[in-house]
Design a binder for these strands. Structure first.
Ligand SMILES: [Zn+2]
Ligand SMILES: [Zn+2]
Length: 625
DNA sequence: TAGTGCGGGGGAC
DNA sequence: GTCCCCCGCACTA
């Protein structure tokens, strides 16, 4: 099952929606990586295309809204039945959300075919990764099999540095050097993946559409040659993995397949962009879908955004002119910088960096006009396209955290691989969120908090079989929303330079980490969580992660396991929900009656600026005040 | 040796 | 003060 933009896409629905828009695509199941190299990207691709937003796509889909409408940053994410887990998608692309079983080995490892590297978002509960793009030849040479150099950047910084500048593995290439073609698939920033463990599920969310081909696997012939393991003879197929003893026929065959593969990938890549240009009317169904599909929700400009698709014939043209892969940068460089425009009274979601999050929606005419200035020195203009959204249309798309806003960002193609990427609620913003103030783009100061669950303009026919509606679909402000609001308004605290975000709950104190392999401890007994009623300073000795507490799960992904498992279970009983991104402390759930207000998740920020305290120490110091 | 995640902290803003 | 992002550490495969 796939959840996209607030909609649930069961297999058949995916097919349906897909066939409606992209009849050429079918099954959404991904191929194993091995096969990937030999098969067109189509099938994988479709996973992405089928995730085109749904807004008004079809009645079926609209009515399919379910408790699967979650965002990785929701305080509460749905609980998913075992049978509903998605198959692992190695090449997920586009804005999408998947739910895996905690027993899914691949999911547990947070792997991806794309070169995704860890990004420190200072949120131990949500793992963020950003795409490193691909390694290409500076000469853009062509391999004997007709394809281009398209290698997988090493995840390890050191290893990657060694890769860069190496001579092109293509023997027929003169002077080519390997260089990184950074991913800019998410409003000019790298595509990001988010992982979060909760209950019996692993929640995965991807943001952005890769603007580059899938990198060859590390063990590809070209890769081996490039990095010194295997020699690649000029006549041999490069990335197809043909053996040295391959016959001429086999060689030709692989050459062809190599060509076919990359050409198809390229085609798909262009399709991803071109399809966004097919409609020039932002209000048309497809345009709206595309909006939702591509918008990062934070950036508000689309005129130059890599995510853009509106009207952009120029870009499309340039794209189509590019050879096998696009140039190191998008044609946006030639685009004009569009001024920010006020948005209508529409909702959007604030995806500021630093992530604990409850996406912040703002519905102010002027809110979405600020320039995020995400990356200093980089031209980054924002225009809200939200005006395309009429409240009556369907704001459900916002539920997923994606607004129909785009951005424009042009920055140097350098070795900068980090990910200044649009994200979630900003801690500093949280603390400004008070009563009904509003917060616009980064840098603005007048926010109105709206949560995923509450942006809906039009109540959707509910699901009688669970409490989803109760929490998510009620027209009036729900308890859930109130909780969330409380959480946020109280979640702020000592926002200082370096620290981490922790979620805590007023009624909680207890173990911080669970073994992902086991069920969450029953009514957790506390192990050091200390909570104060203000929610300002909550933590536990184990709060810092895997370093200081024997209670910790030393699995590499234990941190992403929801801390609120107990509560989650309670909620599961009560309403089929899983409480969220818990930070520190889970505790006597008994106090948190299932029908009563859930424990208020609060955000705690540990100040470490210029201090070298361990978390436990930091906490003591902190609570001392 | 590389992949992975955690997290300190410099420094730009 | 905020927070992007570089970097090192620990651990694993
Ligand atoms: Zn080359
Ligand atoms: Zn990418």
């Amino acid at each position: 099952m796939v959840v996209l933009n607030g909609y649930t896409f069961k297999a058949h629905y995916q097919q349906l929606s897909h066939s409606e828009q992209h009849p050429q695509h079918h099954s959404h199941h991904q191929q194993p990586q091995q096969q990937q190299q030999h098969q067109p990207q189509q099938q994988e691709q479709q996973s992405q295309t089928s995730h085109l937003p749904a807004t008004s796509t079809s009645t079926a889909m609209t009515t399919q809204k379910s408790k699967r409408d979650w965002d990785i940053n929701d305080a509460i994410v749905p609980q998913v039945a075992d049978i509903e887990f998605d198959e692992f998608s190695e090449w997920s692309d586009g804005h999408m959300r998947l739910v895996y079983s905690v027993h899914n080995e691949e999911a547990k490892k947070h792997i991806s075919g794309w070169a995704m590297r860890n990004t420190n978002n200072h949120n131990v509960n949500i793992l963020k990764k950003s795409c490193l793009g691909v390694l290409v030849c500076s000469q853009h040479c062509t391999l004997p099999n007709g394809s281009k150099i398209n290698l997988r950047p090493a995840i390890c910084d050191k290893a990657r540095r060694k890769q860069e500048g190496k001579t092109c593995p293509n023997k027929s290439c003169r002077g080519g050097r390997l260089e990184i073609k950074p991913c800019r698939g998410h409003c000019g920033y790298p595509v990001t993946h988010f992982w979060r463990h909760s209950g019996n599920a692993i929640f995965f969310q991807a943001k952005g559409v890769h603007d580059h081909l899938r990198p060859d696997p590390k063990n590809s012939s070209v890769s081996k040659r490039a990095f010194g393991r295997v020699a690649l003879t000029t006549g041999k197929a490069a990335s197809m993995g043909s053996s040295r003893s391959a016959s001429v026929a086999a060689s030709k065959k692989s050459v062809i397949s190599g060509l076919v593969k990359q050409v198809k990938q390229q085609q798909n890549l262009m399709d991803k962009v071109l399809k966004r240009t097919t409609s020039s009317n932002p209000l048309t169904h497809s345009a709206l879908e595309i909006y939702q599909f591509n918008a990062c929700g934070k950036c508000t400009t689309y005129s130059h955004c890599t995510c853009g698709y509106l009207e952009d014939t120029t870009r499309a043209h340039q794209l189509s002119q590019s050879s096998n892969y696009m140039n190191s940068s998008w044609p946006m460089a030639t685009a004009e910088s569009a001024p920010c425009e006020p948005s209508a009274n529409v909702f959007t979601v604030n995806h500021q960096h630093i992530t604990y999050n409850y996406p912040i929606y703002h519905a102010t005419p002027t809110a979405a006009t600020a320039a995020p200035s995400k990356s200093p020195g980089l031209p980054y203009t924002c225009i809200s396209e939200l005006s395309a959204y009429q409240p009556g249309l369907n704001t459900q798309s916002n539920l997923s955290g994606y607004s129909n806003a785009n951005c424009q960002l042009a920055y140097e193609t350098g070795s900068q691989l980090a990910t200044p990427e649009p994200e979630f609620i900003n801690y500093s913003q949280i603390k400004h969120l008070g009563s009904g103030t509003e917060l616009g783009c980064k840098g603005e100061t007048t926010p109105t908090i709206k949560y995923n669950a509450t942006v809906e303009a039009q109540p959707v026919a509910g699901y009688a079989d669970d409490n989803f509606d109760y929490y998510y679909n009620r027209e009036s402000k729900s308890d859930y929303e109130l909780q969330q609001q409380f959480a946020v308004t109280h979640g702020h605290s000592h926002g200082h330079g370096h620290g981490h975000y922790y979620e805590s709950a007023n009624s909680y104190n207890g173990v911080s980490y669970f073994d992902t392999g086991t069920t969450a401890p029953s009514n957790g007994s506390g192990s050091g969580g200390s909570v104060n009623s203000s929610g300002l300073n909550i933590t536990s000795g184990s709060g810092s992660g895997n370093s200081s507490n024997s209670n910790l799960n030393h699995g590499s992904y234990s941190s992403y396991y929801d801390q609120y498992s107990n509560y989650e279970q309670q909620m599961a009983v009560a309403g089929g929900f899983v409480a969220a991104a818990g930070g520190v402390g889970v505790a006597s759930v008994a106090n948190v009656a299932n029908t009563v207000a859930p424990p208020t998740p609060t955000l705690t920020y540990h100040h470490h600026h210029h201090h070298h305290l361990h978390h436990a120490q930091a906490q003591s110091a902190h609570t001392a005040h």
